[in-house]
């Protein structure tokens, strides 16, 4: 192997002589490699998405034999006039903001602690929440949130405090869902930030310590700037995933009580497959896609400003 590598520069020159002949074939092979993936994505997601814009202009039942009525922008107008939509939007963004900020800060704090600790080998246990199905996570938390028989209220009453109706009150239910998301994804944030800390060059940190910088100074002026690429990856993934939260809502609150936890995904599912209103759900989906695109653009922009990801 070694010799062939050494020989390659010589042979490469001869290759370049007829390089112009090889180029079209090279591109052709490259296209053959990439084509199936593009084709699958076009067929399974791009075409359906375009089709959805079409559906959103109709009154469209889930039952295929029922007639469809073209109603233009009516459904969009209804959405923009309904307070339920704004409630859902508000809950979604409140949820997103709280969980992302908490997960990022907690993850960062824990990562900094673990990076300098002697029990670093324990870190792998933090992987567990992130790989378990959200359905299972929702199920077990619902069990633990139970008012009379839940273990959480048991701990709370043991501390001499009043039992909490976790899922019974609007605000408490939204907070409960946030706790579950924070539980599942803080370790994810922590592990990624920890991997980022461990891949940092040690010289700047050592130099700063030699120069007598305090640990706050080291963090603010050296560690934090070096970590921004990793932090923006966490932000990108967490923000977009929090935006589409569905499973834990379905399992824990079903949108309730009232409409307190009707996050957008759940709202759309309910309209389409519960209230049998595909057109309305499609219009909501169009709005959701636009919001997701804005979010993704923002965070990918943030990411490419802080680093060259690829």
């Amino acid at each position: 192997m070694n010799t062939s590598v050494e020989q390659s520069p010589v042979k490469l020159e001869t290759l370049e002589v007829d390089g112009h002949k090889r180029r079209p074939r090279r591109i052709k092979f490259g296209l053959i490699l990439v084509a199936p993936a593009i084709l699958v994505i076009l067929l399974t997601i791009i075409y359906p998405t375009i089709y959805m814009f079409f559906v959103s202009f109709f009154r469209w039942s889930i039952i295929p034999t029922l007639p469809r009525h073209f109603i233009g922008f009516d459904q969009y107008l209804t959405i923009f006039r309904s307070s339920a939509f704004y409630g859902s939007l508000q809950a979604t963004f409140l949820f997103l903001l709280v969980v992302v900020v908490v997960e990022l800060l907690l993850g960062l704090g824990l990562a900094l602690l673990i990076a300098s600790s002697r029990i670093r080998w324990l870190r792998i246990s933090f992987l567990m929440p992130a790989v378990i199905a959200p359905v299972v996570v929702g199920l077990i938390w619902r069990f633990m949130f139970s008012h009379d028989l839940g273990v959480i209220n048991y701990f709370i009453s043991m501390m001499g405090l009043e039992r909490i109706a976790w899922l019974g009150r609007p605000t408490a239910a939204l907070i409960s869902i946030m706790i579950v998301d924070i539980w599942q994804w803080t370790p994810f944030a922590m592990l990624i930030i920890l991997a980022g800390i461990e891949s940092l060059p040690t010289e700047p940190l050592e130099a700063a310590q030699v120069d007598g910088a305090s640990s706050t100074q080291v963090f603010r002026h050296i560690l934090f700037p070096l970590l921004t690429p990793v932090l923006s990856i966490v932000l990108l993934f967490r923000a977009l995933d929090a935006f589409k939260t569905f499973d834990i809502i379905y399992m824990i609150t079903r949108g309730g009580p009232g409409r307190a936890t009707y996050l957008l995904s759940y709202n759309i599912w309910r309209r389409a497959f519960f209230e049998n209103n595909m057109g309305y759900a499609a219009a909501l989906s169009v709005i959701m896609i636009i919001l997701a695109t804005i979010l993704a653009k923002f965070f990918i922009g943030l990411l490419s400003r802080t680093q060259k990801m690829v």
């Binding site: 997601i45 359906p48 998405t49 089709y51 959805m52 559906v55 977009l240 935006f243 589409k244 569905f246 957008l264 995904s265 759309i268 599912w269 389409a272 595909m278 759900a281 499609a282 989906s285 959701m288 896609i289 997701a292 979010l295 993704a296």
Partner: peptide
């Protein structure tokens, strides 16, 4: 990054 619920309807 696309929310899966958005794809389910079409």
């Amino acid at each position: 990054m696309l929310p899966p619920i958005v794809a389910t309807i079409p």
